[in-house]
Computed example of a mutant assay.
Amino acid sequence: MMKRFTVCAMAVLLGLSAVAQSVAPAFALPDINGATHSLSHYIGKIVVLEWTNYDCPFVRKFYETGTMQAMQEEYTAKNVVWLSICSSAPGKQGNLSLDEWKLRVKANGSKATAVLLDESGRVGHAYRASNTPHIFVVDKDGNLAYQGSVDDQRTADPKTAGKGRNYLDEALYALLAGNPVPTPMTKPYGCSVKY
């Protein structure tokens, strides 16, 4: 029985290690100002991919409390690239016109490097982004180092923002220090991506 448990535990750890070492899918997407951002342009930098939908209460939890913007500001100041991505399809919640996007980004005080639009859902599907927010961290070599939730507070209650264990913060802190990410994968939570 113990031997079987050990073998299963090793398989899980090897699976997590494989996730951490998988190459991040390449993409090129326009931002809300019309510039195109390609993941390949950021080789040599740590990149955060934050799937977002400003109308999702789980996303609002982080933005209305300033928690997401504080992380964006802290890590972009450390040369981390932060790309917020919206994969909401036309006519679905979270899909906005360019003018609406510009107003909402300004109103939210986003400190992301750029907000990218993925209306076709092609990039979201390539990453298997399932929730908003769903976070992916790409290391300097272009490998996925972390994917999952921002934290362990699986609720939309704003009182929980900035509380508990912050997996994203842990991942970025480790990578900036040249260390392996302690928890390379967690289960994301939030609204479903509106493909």
Rank of each mutant, 00 (worst) to 15 (best):
I135N: 01
V80S: 00
A20H: 03
D152V: 01
P180D: 11
K163Y: 11
P184N: 04
L172I: 03
G124K: 01
M2R: 12
V48I: 13
T160D: 12
T132P: 05
G15M: 10
A156W: 12
N166V: 02
S87Y: 01
Y63Q: 09
I85P: 01
M68A: 15
W82N: 02
V123C: 08
V138N: 01
K78S: 07
A145D: 03
V80L: 05
L29W: 00
L96R: 13
A20T: 02
Y75F: 09
T76F: 03
V80Y: 01
V137Y: 00
D141Q: 10
T186M: 07
M1R: 11
H134S: 08
T36A: 11
M10H: 12
L103Y: 14
H41V: 10
V123I: 13
K78R: 14
F58K: 00
R165V: 14
T6S: 09
A18E: 11
V115G: 02
K3S: 09
P90H: 07
A18G: 10
G164I: 08
L172A: 06
P184C: 03
L144T: 07
Q153M: 15
L175S: 05
L49V: 05
L103G: 13
I135M: 15
S110V: 07
K187F: 15
A129C: 05
H134C: 06
G94S: 00
G142D: 05
V81D: 12
A26D: 13
L14N: 12
P180V: 11
G162D: 08
R128W: 09
K159C: 10
Y75E: 04
L14F: 14
Y189H: 13
L172D: 04
I43K: 14
Y75A: 02
S84E: 13
T113F: 03
A9R: 14
S97Q: 06
L168Q: 03
A114L: 07
G91I: 03
T76H: 07
V19I: 15
F58Y: 15
A89E: 08
P25I: 08
G164K: 09
G34S: 09
L117R: 10
G178L: 05
T6C: 10
P180Q: 10
T65I: 10
A129R: 00
A161H: 06
I32R: 00
A171N: 06
A177Q: 15
A77L: 05
K194W: 06
E64L: 11
S40N: 12
D99V: 15
A114Q: 05
V47A: 02
S192R: 11
Y189A: 05
V81L: 02
N33P: 06
V181K: 01
E50D: 15
H37F: 03
Q69Y: 08
K45S: 10
H134A: 01
K61R: 15
N131G: 10
G94P: 02
G66Y: 10
G15R: 13
A70G: 09
V47Q: 04
K92R: 13
T160R: 14
H37L: 01
S192T: 13
A11V: 10
D157R: 07
A9D: 08
S88K: 04
G164A: 04
Y63T: 14
R60K: 15
I85C: 00
T160Q: 14
W101M: 12
S38C: 09
T183P: 01
C56D: 04
V138S: 01
V181S: 01
D118M: 04
A161K: 01
I32Y: 04
G44T: 05
I32H: 03
D139P: 04
R165N: 12
Q147A: 12
Q72T: 03
W82F: 09
